[in-house]
């Protein structure tokens, strides 16, 4: 029988690789009796689903811009080639 720690490791890995059938059954059995690991599993999947939105959100933050110095430096580099 898996404990919560072992289950959390396998649940995370299930997002990165196919589990063996033994591992799948062991996780399923644990989730059947453990509401906390069920929540954990749902939350990991939810976070995974939110990451695309995070990227959009993070790149929309208009307070971060190229500094004038960096812009000038890049322009000079581009001029050498173009």
């Amino acid at each position: 029988m898996l404990n919560c720690k072992q289950t959390s490791v396998l649940v995370s890995q299930s997002l990165d690789r196919p589990l063996t059938w033994r591992e799948r059954w062991a996780v399923r059995l644990h989730l059947l009796i453990c509401v906390y690991c069920r929540r954990f599993t749902a939350q990991l999947k939810w976070i995974q689903g939110a990451m695309q939105s995070w990227q959009t959100h993070a790149t929309d933050r208009t307070e971060d811009v190229l500094s004038a110095a960096a812009r000038e430096r890049i322009t000079q580099q581009l001029d050498k080639f173009y």
Binding site: Q55, A58, T59, R61, T62, D64, V65, L66, S67, A70, R71, R73, I74, Q77, L78, F81
Partner: peptide, 28 residues
């Protein structure tokens, strides 16, 4: 697209100088 690329790089590298450098490398 410069600011967009910079923000994209900054979210992943966190370091403003490294982010500027990869934007420059990208455009070149």
């Amino acid at each position: 697209h410069g600011d967009y690329l910079y923000r994209f790089a900054l979210t992943r590298l966190r370091d403003p100088h490294q982010a500027e450098d990869v934007v420059q490398e990208t455009l070149l």
